[in-house]
Computed example of a mutant assay.
Amino acid sequence: MKSVLSYTLTPVLSALLVILAVVVIVKQQEIDSLHHKLVLTEQTAEARKGMIEEVRLLQKALTNSPVRTVTVTAYNPTTDQCDDDPLIAASNRRVRQGTIAVSRDLFDQGWVFGRKVRIEGLGIFEINDLMNKRFTKRIDIFMWDEAKAREFGKKNIRAALLAI
Results as ranks from 00 to 15, higher is better:
Leu20Arg: 05
Lys155Asn: 08
Leu17Gly: 15
Gly153His: 01
Met51Trp: 09
Thr79Lys: 10
Asn128Ser: 12
Leu87His: 11
Arg48Lys: 15
Glu30Arg: 12
Gly153Cys: 05
Gln97Pro: 11
Glu42Asn: 13
Gly121Ser: 08
Leu162Asp: 08
Glu120Tyr: 05
Met143Gln: 06
Asn128Ala: 07
Glu126Pro: 06
Ala90Tyr: 05
Arg93Tyr: 09
Thr73Cys: 03
Leu106Lys: 01
Val117Gly: 00
Asp108Leu: 12
Ile127Glu: 00
His35Lys: 14
Asn132Ala: 08
Leu62Thr: 04
Glu126Leu: 03
Leu38Ile: 04
Val102Trp: 06
Lys154Val: 13
Val26Gln: 12
Gly98Trp: 02
Ile52Glu: 14
Glu54Val: 08
Val18Gly: 12
Ile25Leu: 15
Leu34Asn: 13
Met143Lys: 06
Asp145Leu: 07
Gln29Val: 09
Gln81Tyr: 00
Ile157Glu: 03
Met131Gly: 05
Val26Met: 12
Met51Val: 09
Arg158Lys: 15
Val67Cys: 14
Arg158Trp: 06
Ser33Cys: 07
Ser103Arg: 01
Pro77Leu: 01
Asp145His: 06
Val72Phe: 04
Asp85Val: 03
Ile25Asn: 11
Gly110Tyr: 01
Thr73Arg: 01
Gly153Ala: 04
Glu30Tyr: 11
Gly114His: 05
Leu9Pro: 04
Gly123Thr: 00
Asn132Pro: 07
Arg68Thr: 04
Ile19Glu: 13
Ala15Pro: 04
Glu46Leu: 15
Thr8Trp: 02
Arg104Tyr: 04
Tyr75Gln: 03
Lys155Glu: 08
Glu151Met: 09
Asp140Gly: 03
Arg138Phe: 02
Phe142Thr: 01
Val70Thr: 03
Glu126Asp: 05
Val102Leu: 03
Arg56Lys: 14
Glu53Arg: 08
Lys116Met: 09
Arg158Asn: 15
Asp80Arg: 13
Ser65Asn: 14
Thr63Leu: 13
Glu151Thr: 06
Ala163Trp: 06
Asn76Gly: 07
Ile52Thr: 11
Gly153Met: 05
Leu40Ala: 12
Met131Lys: 01
Val12Met: 09
Glu53Tyr: 06
Thr41Glu: 12
Arg150Gln: 14
Asp129Met: 00
Ser91Met: 00
Leu87Ile: 10
Phe152Met: 05
Glu42Val: 10
Gln81Val: 04
Val39Pro: 04
Arg96Glu: 12
Asp105Val: 07
Thr78Cys: 08
Asp145Arg: 02
Glu42Ser: 12
Ile157Tyr: 02
Phe107Ile: 04
Ile139Gly: 02
Phe135Asp: 05
Leu62Tyr: 01
Lys60Thr: 00
Ile88Thr: 09
Tyr75Phe: 11
Lys148Ala: 15
Ala45Ser: 13
Ala45Ile: 11
Leu20Pro: 07
Asp84Ala: 15
Phe142Gln: 06
Val112Tyr: 02
Val23Tyr: 13
Thr136Trp: 01
Asp32Met: 07
Ile31Thr: 10
Leu162Arg: 06
Asp80Cys: 10
Val24Asp: 11
Leu57Trp: 04
Ser3Glu: 15
Thr41Ser: 14
Val12His: 06
Thr136Ala: 09
Arg138Leu: 03
Asn64Pro: 01
Val55Glu: 09
Gly123Lys: 01
Ala61Val: 03
Leu106Gly: 00
Ala15Trp: 01
Leu13Gln: 08
Gly114Glu: 06
Leu87Met: 13
Ile124Glu: 08
Ile157Ala: 00
